[in-house]
Design a binder for these strands. Structure first.
Lengths: 197, 197, 197, 197
DNA sequence: TATTAAGCGAGACGGTACGTCTTGTCTTGGA
DNA sequence: TCCAAGACAAGACGTACCGTCTCGCTTAATA
């Protein structure tokens, strides 16, 4: 994922791990006190005590830095539950995800999704790095459901994934209702429990 | 929708209809050839042959202009189908909406949603003016379904609306799959047809 | 000097004397609280409760209004002394002029002179209307001195006028020293009193 | 005269000599074809091929740039004559000064003096940098006259300086008569030659 | 151990867009 | 018929960031 610290062919000073860490820390600090759209390369550089060229050497813009900082922070915060039952796996997973968004990173995640719409260079990276991995986790949970016979062999897992993630993103972005446990329960119930209708 | 030209309390030159129209036209023209995030107040002013202060007198920024232009263009493009049957009403409505997004305004709508994430001043206006009206249309369709007995009296219409709009926005923003007729059909089938699973 | 309030030939609403007076009053009021270069046509119009086009109908810019207001205010504030003696006439006249500048209009007069440098349209009017009349007053005092034999028949009165007014303007504009009575006395003494050297 | 390029405390890209020179050249060029009050920061930036922030980094406005350009151009154009005689020294000095103003920089100098009246930030700098140095030159000439006994020990040199510079500025600003050699001669004669009256 | 070249901070650079201000003209409706 | 109110096109203002560049200092692997 990161070919940056290798090479080191001949002489010369190696790249400073310290600078990278300072940037990540500074970014997370700034996100605590200011909103995403107030972040600029200049501010991050100043806060991290790092030169702008250093920033540009390793990242091509603010959203790339923020995404990396976010993934570094949230690393393995959300696991993949395996209770042996589809409904409770999905329920668990959604609850975890909602909580993570509500309590912490929601604002920033919203901003990154927004950035991905406006910045084509970032869009691809964001989807393949950030979104895709989480979607895969859900798809794997669903696949286990198919194996167990809880879903039909020909179930459209992509559609079901959209039906789980779609409403989540919709509420996250549109803010017309909370991403709380009630919502997770209703969602799971409506989607998987025939009696829930 | 626009109470501005009514103010006209006493004296004073009234708002120039010509300038307003020039701005709307220029904005739509620019959107045809450039992407949303290349739009600037200055470019719009120049294209419309209008002074910047005139722009700022009536709109507080690019997204507000774009939203108004979009609503003016799409006025009544999407109707509210009434076939007498819930499933086909929803199907019809989603198909219409998807087509409108796919063929024309999708790019710009995505950008406005993104803007709403990054620009708090715009967020409220966007949701209350743009999103809300369309959501109401769907809710009304669902209510008719309840009246006809196609949905139970206590059905959670807000949840169902989220399950319709959520996946749409998710695909629009995340671009991992098309907003085509197949998707509309699958969605409706999964949500309302017990045999569709 | 002012052919504006006459005519009133046929029908129609007569021109408002009230508006003119309001402009003059408003201008003088504004000059009490703000500096000349903060004056704008718009601010004067607002303060006077007058439309901008009305302002432009009668004056072509801020300095023209200010000059008229100033002359209206200072009308006959400075007389032409006639003590029967050249030296005391000039001394008297300079003292009067210095006092008027120091106590009141100095700031504004400085600004008008500055404006005349930057604004060719104003330059001519300013010199012919404002400066010239005062210069003539001094020249007349000097001529009386020639008639009385206090100055030689071939005295260069223009040069002497420059020697009186020049230092005054120089100190007014350059502010390196005060325009006080001592200065008036020294000036007269150096210029007219052979023993004063 | 310019302690800016010496700062260079530690790191950082040093001030670009090229940019500085381009600005000076562009300013002098523009002054040849347009009048001072048509000069704007934007035009200078464009003509010099320099960004506006670079201009504002080093100068706080148009008059500051113009003054620097003028001083750079006129550097040591006017010397301090020393003929051994007061009258001819002053005469020489005034002739030089008049010629410089008449042939070249007069227009711009007038404008700067005007600017100093309207712009308090500029006023101080202008007087201390531009005016003061020239006044000192004249005062030194007069002091030599005192040492030689051509002027009394207690002569008021400041007054005499005002009597030389005052009429010059008066004619420069008021334009009622030329700044020619005749004027220089009359002035010197009236001020220093008892028989000249 | 000394050399040496890359990485580093700082920050100036040419640009672009911002949102505000003022100018002088115009267009209404009310008096 | 004249006016106040104020909208209009134009364009300069001074600021904030952008992404690139040029410095001189620091630092660690190579020789």
């Amino acid at each position: 994922m990161d070919e940056r610290q290798e090479k080191q062919t001949g002489a010369g000073r190696p790249r400073s791990r310290k600078a990278l860490e300072a940037v990540m820390t500074a970014t997370l600090n700034l996100l605590k006190t200011t909103s995403y759209n107030q972040l600029t390369m200049e501010r991050i550089a100043k806060e991290a005590g790092v030169g702008k060229p250093t920033l540009y050497r390793w990242w091509s813009g603010v959203p790339f830095i923020v995404m990396e900082a976010l993934m570094l922070q949230a690393e393995s915060e959300i696991g993949s539950p395996d209770t042996g039952q589809l409904i409770s796996d999905v329920h668990q997973y959604l609850k975890q995800t909602f909580r993570s968004l509500t309590e912490g990173t929601g604002e920033t995640v919203r901003s990154l999704m927004a950035e991905a719409q406006l910045n084509p260079d970032f869009a691809g990276v964001f989807r393949e790095t950030f979104i895709s991995s989480r979607r895969q986790t859900l798809i794997r949970i669903l696949e286990r459901g198919v194996q167990r016979g809880e879903l039909p062999q020909n179930a459209d897992l992509e559609l079901i994934a959209d039906l789980c993630y779609g409403p989540m993103w919709y509420r996250l972005l549109n803010r017309h209702a909370a991403l709380d446990e009630t919502f997770a329960a209703s969602l799971v119930s409506y989607l998987f429990d025939s009696d829930g209708r």
